[in-house]
Design a protein around this nucleic acid. Structure first.
Lengths: 337, 337
DNA sequence: ATTAGCACTTAGGACCATGGAGTGCCAGGA
DNA sequence: TCCTGGCACTCCATGGTCCTAAGTGCTAAT
């Protein structure tokens, strides 16, 4: 059905179309590539490829253009991830190395990824649920208010003010703080709910109201932040892409964090590179884009994902290489923090 | 020079051009507005307006289009800020009211402003330097590390990890925390450097290394965050604008936080509405956009600014009304926190 | 000072012709 | 059986021409 040569033709079509952005014809193909056969033969192969849905013609008497299915085959079987050049790798190291806190790491990563791929970059903050408690701090603010600060081992900090309490005593706060830290330090955030379950019972009755208020806010902050934070970069590169869909639709989709999170979430195995091409994306506005994403984490502990959004007509090997490399460095940096 | 009628003509031109996006001719003007004179007379006025540089023709035999100078005159003398409708005001209240922490307030504000104006919204986080210390927290993380958390009265939280210490004792951290809070709570961030100056001297020699490390990080975090954080929203609306400059240039400018901060910073009196039109913007890529900005703050204490970026051909009265209203509500919400 | 009338300019759309790139198919050759 | 050269055909893109609608500036009359 699809012999070696037909695959070679498909590969050549994808490569040419990606670099020229024009439908590619049989003559041009046999000129630019050494396929060893005549244009007529290539034409026959093209007919077969078209029948199987890998390529299409915008109109009769035009060259061929890869379909989503064609890109899919190309990514799965005809290409290899392109490693970054030494210069690029060094650029990543120096650029990410200078960051001081989590916000800055994420900010730099997104800019770096956008620049490397010349596309729109998406970076998800390290997931709270995959990290563990490093410390819980309680700070009395006057008589009625207490601030709770939750610090995770990935450097993330959540804080909330608990309001409307009455007559908070320093001692009560102190003992609650100690109890919380004894019970929680080192536990996964997912385990926190069960870990705090019977804490209030261990306290003197006077302090239970405070404990209940703090715990409910603590648990709430865990749940709420399940809708993770995300950062975008390189949207200026959208202007240079010629998306068949309206630019507005794409921008709208990108602004909806929920949409982006779902897209990243849908990607399969978090330790692998995932590519979703064109209509494979469930979101309407992104039907004419492809998304290359990868998980990052510390060691084999996945934390979250990063990705790149570009036209289906993109340089898949290069983009995949950049995404993979940045994901790895990001993991290393976080581990070193 | 510019009698009443000429001004009325200019106003009519601006209004028509903003709503139709097409050069407006003398006939159309006399039809759509009740100026009480014939098209020929309007033409004569137009010649005068053009000589003075308030309007221009894209080409001979086309209608007139306002110039930057024309918009400037319109904004300064021919229009009044349009108050929001009751429904819009209620929408602001309910939408902003539901926010829990600072991030969410800012996030909602930017989306709200983008939606109200159908343009790109910019919101600057409340300035650190204009707020005061509410609490300083020190958290020992093992033997070598201490985390510092600085909480301001505007709800902002800065945290830093201090690394590479040796043999940190709980007691030393406790006494340092108490000392810091005694010295700093309530002081303006700008006053912090002088307030901590002679603190180390009051400590036992053993604790001075720790204190020095903590103070240097504390001061550093104050300085660094002088480059403020900014949030963008509604970039999808860019697609609908027909900017004469390339979309890419505008997107690039908007991605550069530094550029945006400078633009907001350049705006004059922080308590006032500021409008910068077209070439009045120093940044190259924004020559074909206008920026409407306003400061917000608690009481008469200015904190930071918000703004809107759109085409010079924008509905100035409406945009100004929305920006002003949102800035006021934002101040109220922050005061209530 | 205003107005009606008129000649003039220009962008943009409709229409058409043409050239070029690409195709499908067929018959001949390895 | 598979490949190839040749050929007729299709269609888009390009550029030229023409025409209309909208708008202008100017002048003479009110």
């Amino acid at each position: 059905m699809l012999d070696e040569r037909k695959l070679a033709v498909l590969r050549a079509i994808v490569e040419d179309y990606v670099s020229t952005n024009e439908p590619v014809g049989s003559k041009a193909l046999s000129d630019r590539h050494t396929l060893g056969v005549s244009p007529a033969t290539i034409r026959n192969d093209m007919v077969a490829l078209e029948e199987d849905g890998y390529i299409a013609q915008p109109h009769t008497s035009a060259g061929r253009v890869p379909t989503d299915k064609g890109y899919r085959l190309f990514v799965d079987r005809l290409s290899t991830v392109k490693p970054l050049s030494g210069a690029e790798r060094r650029a990543i190291e120096t650029f990410l190395g200078g960051a001081v806190d989590l916000d800055e790491i994420v900010g730099r990563t997104v800019r770096l990824l956008a620049q490397l791929t010349r596309q729109v970059a998406v970076v998800q903050y390290p997931s709270l649920t995959r990290s563990s408690v490093q410390h819980v701090e309680l700070v009395p603010l006057g008589q009625q208010r207490v601030m709770m600060v939750l610090i995770t081992d990935t450097g993330r900090v959540e804080q909330r003010v608990i309001d409307g309490l009455e007559a908070v005593s320093e001692d009560a706060v102190d003992s609650l703080r100690q109890m919380l830290n004894r019970a929680l330090v080192g536990t996964w955030l997912t385990e926190v709910p069960s870990a705090v379950e019977d804490l209030p019972g261990q306290l003197p009755p006077d302090d239970r109201a405070l404990a209940a208020a703090v715990l409910s806010v603590l648990l709430e902050s865990l749940v709420e932040r399940h809708d993770e934070k995300i950062v975008l970069g390189g949207t200026a590169n959208l202007a240079a892409m010629d998306l068949s869909a309206s630019l507005r639709d794409v921008l709208e989709a990108l602004e909806e964090n929920v949409v982006l999170l779902r897209l990243l979430g849908e990607a399969g195995d978090p330790s692998m590179l995932t590519v979703r091409i064109g209509a494979e994306n469930s979101h309407e506005g992104l039907r004419s884009t492809s998304i290359v994403s990868a998980g990052y984490g510390i060691g084999d502990q996945p934390l979250a994902k990063i990705g790149v959004v570009g036209p289906t007509r993109m340089d898949y090997p290069g983009t995949m290489g950049a995404v993979r490399a940045v994901a790895r460095y990001l993991g290393q940096i976080l581990a070193g923090q």
